[in-house]
Design a binder for these strands. Structure first.
Lengths: 193, 193, 193, 193
DNA sequence: CATGAATGAGCCTTCATTCAT
DNA sequence: CATGAATGAAGGCTCATTCAT
């Protein structure tokens, strides 16, 4: 069991450091935005910069891990919950887009790298976006079949729309009515009836 | 007379420098995006950085001048032309939003400072935005009166929508279908019928 | 018997690792010069850096082993061959110095540590140099006895001369006429007649 | 006079800083060798790293300035003095090569960049080397015409020989007999008779 | 004995802005 | 008013070596 050769034991300090880095990064991203210096993240995590770079060779890799391990799970959970609890496909799509928007503003400045990930498909953030686009496609397809959404749209468009709106509003509370207004416009844009 | 010290005329070289700076900045912003170093703009203009800063105390001030003096005029002209030539208020609004989008992508990275101008009302870019929002309001109002646009919207929302779309597409040609798709969504969002 | 704990046999994997490290180092030194990172050598050898350091506590130790086990043998062979086949002591010395020069450029950057070894007599590379100096002394002595070399010289001087010339030429082909020219000067320097 | 427009007044602090940087660099190069960090030179000069880089964009540029302004002048002076005072062309050449060797060891590690300058002709150090090679050619030519030096040699070879010897000896006192010995070999190499 | 994670000083460089001249 | 030198805090990143496992 424990000597399965393929499951090399991860060193205790490595795990600990990884967790500390992720925690520190989450804190730093939240408080100072996505542009905090890597060095300062390392310092806050109590590790040297080398350790930080060993675990996450780029800022995007760190961000991707954070998004995937912390927020992504919650988002997919939300997807399941919406799918289970909202019988109206139109309102389900709306709820999903709302959740997407909140996820995209988990950190100040997050929309930017997400947009870049879109541009360069080899980005570490790419797969995450892809999955979310597919989820959006799922909700959109259901809404279209139910006659609640225009048939000319696709999930990518709505994902990008949500991203643009998240960018416009920013992470601050201040932009929240901006976002609401834009979401309303977008909803009128895809909704039928 | 002309050497009356109180009758300060603007020195000829000062005027010349201002022009050269604006030209150099336009070129630099176009070719390298909004993030060129101020030093390089100064160098291209053939002046020292001090001179650049004397004329334009911040990058935003430089940008604002450029936008106002170069592109803004063209945009307002466009407004007049649309108003004069397009009898259908809905299509006029659409044309205006298209022009707005092109203006917002005059330089790579321009949407960002425009959004910030929105956030901080004392920004030098604020007034320019304000005027454009009012223009948008004008077109929107006409469209609403003609029953071509939803009455729940206001110019600010559409301006921000256009900005968000411009951001999502970026200045590159690559984002052009992205922009088209989002514009379509937005049009469906405000249009009636 | 074989599990008598006091009769420490070298573990099979240890031997294998040592060989792999030497091979990887030879490759890396050849392709990237002597300044490759130790990490990358370890990686190419398929071992962890710790293992690399266990076998060779410093870069110089690794180099010394490589030189001794790989190239040194060949060089001493060359010595024997020259001694056996070249009846003219002057030409033998010349041939030896040429072989020395080639050995000194086995890797890009090799002359530097050899010179340092010279400076610090406790260097791991010291013995290797010493043996080669003695060999040079042998050839030189023979040449001197045959009246083919100046009697004021010693092997150390010629060894250092060859080293300096190897340094000047570098490992690249580009320096090859440089080396030829300097070798000519040096030959005229020691040769009689 | 003072308003010659082409002779822009150099700012006092600029001159002061330049001098301080050169002094600090000379000290640092002498005491710690050529590989001191640029940052530490800046610190020792009492300026920020930016100032250092403004004056000397690369380490080589700094070195070149130092060599040219401090040592080079002295070397050319030496050339003149030798030419004036030494009637024997062979001994003049010898004296010149000796001076060359001392110049090449002004700092620990100096031969290395000089060799590189040789390799890449666009180096900032290139011109300095070129002038010295020409000077060497001058002395060598005179010696050749006087029948004191072999006619097959050129100044470049002797310059490189001197460089190689300087490298082999290093800047320390310890290498001084090494250098003497090698110089002897080289002298026997070029001298006639 | 092997592993590879951790360390962390140190490196070079940029640039918005100020200020001496 | 123009000039351009000075500033200096960051920033990202590397790598030889040690040590926990």
């Amino acid at each position: 069991m424990s000597n399965d050769p393929s499951a090399r034991r991860v060193r205790a300090d490595a795990t600990r450091n990884r967790v500390q880095i992720l925690e520190a990064a989450a804190r730093a991203f939240e408080e100072e935005g996505l542009n905090v210096s890597m060095d300062s993240i390392a310092k806050q995590a109590g590790v040297g910069p080398g350790t930080l770079y060993r675990h996450f060779p780029t800022r995007d890799a760190l961000l991707a891990a954070l998004l995937l391990e912390e927020h992504y799970a919650g988002l997919l959970e939300t997807r399941t919950r919406i799918a289970a609890q909202e019988p109206d496909a139109g309102r389900a799509l709306d709820a999903w887009i709302g959740a997407l928007g909140r996820w995209m503003n988990a950190y100040d400045g997050l929309p930017e790298p997400l947009r870049l990930a879109w541009t360069r498909p080899d980005s570490v953030l790419g797969p995450a976006c892809q999955t979310l686009i597919e989820a959006t496609d799922g909700f959109l397809g259901a809404a279209q079949r139910a006659g609640k959404a225009r048939s000319s749209l696709n999930g990518r468009d709505l994902f990008l729309g949500a991203l643009a709106i998240a960018w416009a509003g920013g992470a601050s509370k201040a932009g929240s009515d901006t976002q609401t207004a834009l979401h309303d416009v977008m909803r009128s844009g895809w909704a039928v009836g």
